[in-house]
């Protein structure tokens, strides 16, 4: 275990550069996430949000820098680091031949837990997955696939939950339930959450931190007090993000 990692720190990203074919898409990323943090990851299309999340979840190798999840270095102790997070898989990557229950059993068997070992709540019931759980994922709509992906990511109560635009396809009730689950996880003080989203207006009400990626770098960073302040005035945070995006687009 890295002695420099504070026990409260769930994710430590230091000087991370990552990309494809040797070309960096994100570079110089420094990010630290503590238990209780809900980080909103913002940015225009192609700004590097998904690339950053792929590097953090070990899907692409870092060109430089390090990723440490729950005290385990992703490069040298990949399996231990991967125990530390649950990623909501992109709906198009789900195993469509399996039923929702079989998929949960698959993920549960890897994480060493039961198919319904969720942190505190019955996620399948809360997200309205029950009628679909024994049908093949191929039959699911985009929203139902997103629900099963979130339910699988929460299995075994991993300290870090990562949602890459997973809230986009959800119906209002399911989105509301997911937000309640996320808030409950963070308030328990044992978990942290990263949400990559384009729904800027939902960030102040849900997240206590936010970063804006532009051209593969962190262009803005909002701390809890700043977000809370912005959240009090309707549209203020949105306007701030849009201003930052416009400035980036003009500079670019």
């Amino acid at each position: 275990m890295d002695s420099s990692v504070h026990p409260a720190e769930i994710l430590a990203v230091r000087g991370l550069s990552a990309g494809y074919g040797g070309r960096a898409v994100v570079s110089g990323i420094d990010l630290s996430l503590n238990r209780g943090d809900i980080l909103g990851l913002l940015g225009a299309n192609g700004s590097g949000k998904s690339t950053l999340l792929k590097a953090i979840t070990g899907q692409i190798p870092p060109l430089s820098g390090s990723v440490n999840v729950n005290g385990a270095d992703l490069a040298s102790a990949a399996e231990r680091a991967k125990f530390g997070f649950g990623l909501a898989i992109d709906p198009s990557d789900l195993p469509v031949a399996l039923t929702g229950r079989q998929y949960l059993q698959l993920v549960g068997s890897i994480r060493g837990c039961a198919e319904d070992d969720w942190p505190g709540v019955n996620v399948a019931e809360r997200l309205g997955l029950k009628p679909w759980i024994d049908r093949a994922i191929a039959h699911y709509s985009l929203g139902t696939r997103a629900k099963i992906a979130i339910a699988a990511a929460l299995l075994g109560a991993p300290p870090l939950l990562i949602l890459d635009e997973s809230l986009n396809g959800l119906d209002p009730l399911a989105a509301f339930e997911v937000k309640r689950i996320i808030l409950a996880l963070a308030s328990s003080g044992r978990h942290a959450v990263i949400i990559s989203t384009h729904v800027v207006e939902s960030v102040p009400g849900l997240c206590n931190r936010a970063v804006l990626l532009a051209d593969g770098r962190i262009a803005r960073d909002w701390q809890p007090w700043h977000l809370a302040e912005a959240g009090q005035m309707p549209g203020a945070f949105e306007a701030e993000v849009m201003r930052a995006l416009t400035v980036q687009a003009t500079d670019g």
């Binding site: 031949a97 039923t99 068997s109 890897i110 191929a138």
Partner: peptide, 17 residues
């Protein structure tokens, strides 16, 4: 059923195993 469960069903594309 051995961990990871249903992996062969997935690999073979068997509908619902």
């Amino acid at each position: 059923r051995a961990a990871p469960a249903w992996l062969s069903s997935w690999a073979w594309g068997l509908p619902a195993g």
